[in-house]
Simulated assay, not measured.
Amino acid sequence: MLFFVRQLTLAVAVLLFAGCKPQASLPLDQQLYVWQRQWTSAHHPALRDSRADFSTLRVLALQAFPNAGWSRARIDPQVLKRDGRPLIAVMRLDGQLKSLDQAQVTAQILQVIADWQAQGLTLSGIEVDHDAGNARLPAYAQFLKHLRAALPPSLPLSITALPAWLDSGQLATLLQTVDSSVLQVHAVSDPRRGLFDPDQALQWARAWARITDKPFYLALPAYGVALLPDEGGAPLVESEVPLERGGQRQELLADPRQLSQLGNTLREDPPAHLAGLIWFRLPLANDRRAWSLTTLRAVARGDALNSQLGLTLSETDGLYDLTLDNPGNLDSAWPARITVKARDCEGADALAGYALQQSPDLLTFTRLRDGRLPAGAQRAIGWARCAHIDQGGSHVDP
């Protein structure tokens, strides 16, 4: 009996000790939006290189806009089949549509599903992206019930959701019509506040968790936009598609450091029912307003972020090419100024984006416009034909 008591005491002590040990933060499922309307050859390497870190692809499939009607995204089904990850087709119904014709919209969505299946694609779900105003949420819930009844029972239905819906008494009813929701916590509501406020995003996520008892995701930004003045006063937003319009552009970019900190907070203390994070959007090699995939992967993993801007000189018969390098994992703004100690220079010049000032023993490259150097990338900034350049005497100012 004494042996049994000792063993029981030991077992209790072990359990108590285990309960006091700090628990490692749980990983969060990471997914990607693929939002390009026209697929190109750049999609294959981008998808290939994202496979290790992002579990699921949410692909823009169909759009409906006022006056413009319906349009399909021109995807590459062969690339998606080779990729093999779970695939969710996103149906974008613009919030400015006067109403949703249940029969027509449902028919369009069912046709997309049939067409994708005919191309050999297996869908893991459907997402409806409709920025309905709060007054229209009851009608939207009725549409979703109609759509749910028309979809195959085994095909999950999710919706993109707005934080503004938290003010609606209809939200709980709306969320009962779908299997999951995606809370979008990035937008241009006030140019002074940027694209994203991490504290506000966390508040919205915790408020959402108190209303829904179903899985939800957070849609997070990994991109930037430009704001252009409009005659009516409200700014026009230029993102992945350039606008044929002149005027001064105000660039807004989601800060990877802010998103990384939010991700760490969510891992350590996730809101109830939070199923994961979805990043907008898959970056292509020529997407100048998206984070690089290197930076996006680092943020998704929770890695420490760092940029390591430096200057590399390559010399051939006295001709030096000057190249800016970023071997870190964080995209970086072009440095404001780069100085290089040099003597007996016969000639030198800066390349696009920089201007050169030359003195007897110093070359100074000054930034003329804003730009970003992606993580792991290089950019030539100029050249010089000099008797000697002291690489150790070069200096890069942020």
Rank of each mutant, 00 (worst) to 15 (best):
L144H: 04
P152C: 00
A139I: 02
H130E: 04
Y140L: 14
L151C: 09
A132K: 05
T122K: 11
N134V: 12
H130C: 13
R136L: 11
D129L: 13
Q142N: 14
D131F: 14
Y140S: 07
G125N: 03
Q142E: 14
D131Q: 12
A141C: 12
L151G: 03
W116K: 02
A135M: 04
V128S: 05
A135F: 03
L123F: 01
P153N: 05
H130A: 09
Q117E: 15
L137A: 02
W116H: 06
A132E: 09
A139E: 15
T122C: 11
A141P: 12
P152Y: 02
L123N: 01
L147F: 10
P138E: 07
L121R: 00
D129K: 11
T122S: 14
L137V: 06
Y140T: 06
K145Q: 10
Q117P: 09
V128W: 09
A135W: 00
H146S: 11
P152T: 01
T122M: 09
D131E: 15
D131S: 09
L123S: 00
Q142V: 07
E127C: 11
L155G: 04
Q142L: 07
D131V: 06
S124W: 05
A139D: 15
D115T: 10
G133V: 12
R136F: 14
W116F: 15
Q142F: 05
P152H: 10
F143G: 02
N134S: 07
G125D: 05
D115Q: 14
L121E: 01
L155Q: 02
G133P: 06
A141N: 08
Q117W: 05
R136V: 12
A132D: 10
A150P: 09
W116P: 10
D129M: 12
G125Q: 03
Y140N: 06
R136G: 12
A150L: 03
F143K: 04
E127Q: 15
L147I: 03
P153C: 03
I126H: 05
S154Y: 06
L151T: 03
L144S: 05
Y140E: 13
D131Y: 15
V128Q: 08
R148F: 05
Q119C: 04
V128P: 13
D129S: 11
F143W: 15
L121Y: 02
G133I: 09
L151Y: 00
D131N: 11
A132P: 09
L147T: 01
I126L: 08
L121T: 00
P152L: 08
G125W: 03
P138V: 03
P138F: 02
A132N: 04
A135T: 11
L151E: 02
G133R: 13
I126P: 09
I126V: 15
Q117D: 08
S124L: 03
L137K: 07
V128A: 08
A139M: 10
R148C: 07
L155R: 01
P138I: 05
A150E: 07
W116Y: 15
A118G: 12
I126R: 01
L151W: 00
S154N: 11
R148M: 08
A149N: 13
A132Q: 13
P152I: 00
H146K: 11
Y140A: 03
D115A: 15
L137I: 07
G133E: 12
D129I: 02
L151S: 03
W116I: 09
Q142A: 13
L137D: 04
P138C: 07
P152K: 13
D115F: 02
A118E: 14
H146W: 13
A141F: 10
E127K: 10
W116S: 02
G120C: 09
A118F: 05
A135Q: 15
G133D: 10
D131M: 10
A118Q: 14
